[in-house]
């Protein structure tokens, strides 16, 4: 099934855009049909749109599937929206009500049969729904975990205390202790989908150039550490889809997502890497994360270098205080 990609993972903008396009499409269809003199009654149009959003789009288009309780909220919200649409004016409201009233009044044989059938089926359906929802069923519990919890003021790694507010990535600062803008994402550029190095033949851009030194050499050293230690979970493209991503929960962080390292300070990342899952505060579920406390495996320099590599490879620049 590669011909149609689901909305995978956390993609709110894609979801909202797609829904908006669909609603726009419906509106245009509705308008054209009305022009052609075969307008769809608002009663049926409302039901159709509601069913499309809740029973089709949100149920089958998004992966992983949205839990029922969340879809129930969307269902209510969209029902409110549709009611506002159908009750825009008194005539519209009357028009909307007309099919309901005509079944209630049952003035002809068809509506009489329909009314009787509905009067019987609705209570039966409700009873069956109540019964099935009272059966013991065991869905996966939903637990809300904070992905980026508040960091501590200081962290002690390999016997040295780092103040997160003032500590600096030693491989990104110049001789005066300032963040050097040259050591930035300028060396990695967006090209089509992939972020690639600018010039493979330049020792400033290519970490594997034999003459690479300084910043770009440190990137390579960080990359070596990454591909000996981190890719098993975070993946060869740092997108959190490594070999074992399917085995662990919480899933590994996706560094290519604009919501992870791109919006964090390097010292925050340093703290998270050094202390790992077990070092998280309670809201980060330290008991469940398999993220190693890397201070048990790497030196401080190696941790800084691997962070350097992560920013280089994703083309992001860390958030800074100024």
């Amino acid at each position: 099934m590669t011909w149609l990609k689901l909305v995978e993972g956390y993609m709110p903008m894609q979801m909202i855009t797609e829904l908006a396009v669909c609603i726009l499409f419906f509106s245009i269809c509705n308008y054209l049909l009305k022009k052609a003199g075969i307008g769809v009654p608002k009663f049926w149009a409302g039901i159709l749109v509601w069913c499309f959003i809740n029973l089709f789009y949100l149920k089958y288009r998004i992966y992983p599937p949205i839990p029922f309780s969340v879809r129930a909220i969307y269902g209510t919200v969209s029902a409110c929206g549709i009611f506002m649409w159908v009750s825009g004016s008194q005539e519209e409201w009357l028009e909307f009500k007309r099919p309901i009233i005509s079944v209630l009044d049952a003035n002809n044989a068809f509506t009489k049969v329909l009314r009787t059938a509905l009067l019987l089926l609705l209570p039966l359906g409700l009873g069956a729904f109540a019964y099935s929802s009272l059966l013991p069923s065991f869905d996966e519990p939903i637990e809300l975990r904070t992905v980026h919890p508040a960091p501590p003021a200081t962290t002690k790694v390999h016997g040295k205390t780092y103040v997160l507010q003032t500590a600096q990535q030693p491989y990104r600062i110049d001789t005066e202790g300032k963040y050097d803008p040259a050591y930035s994402n300028a060396h990695i550029v967006d090209q089509s989908m992939g972020r690639l190095m600018k010039d493979v033949n330049s020792s400033e851009d290519n970490p594997w150039d034999p003459n690479a030194k300084g910043y770009i050499k440190h990137v390579r050293e960080g990359g070596e550490i990454f591909f000996q230690n981190c890719h098993f979970c975070h993946g060869d493209n740092l997108n959190g889809r490594g070999l074992w991503a399917f085995a662990f929960n919480p899933i590994p962080a996706n560094f290519t997502d604009a919501g992870t390292i791109a919006q964090l300070q390097e010292t925050f990342v340093f703290w998270r890497v050094a202390k790992g899952g077990i070092g998280l505060p309670g809201e980060g579920f330290p008991w469940a994360s398999v993220m190693p406390p890397w201070e048990q495996h790497l030196t401080v320099d190696e941790i800084w270098k691997v962070i350097m590599f992560e920013y280089w490879h994703t083309g992001y620049y860390p958030r800074t205080w100024d």
Partner: peptide
């Protein structure tokens, strides 16, 4: 592409 993604 190779030296960005594959060389590792």
């Amino acid at each position: 592409v190779y030296f960005t993604k594959c060389v590792w």
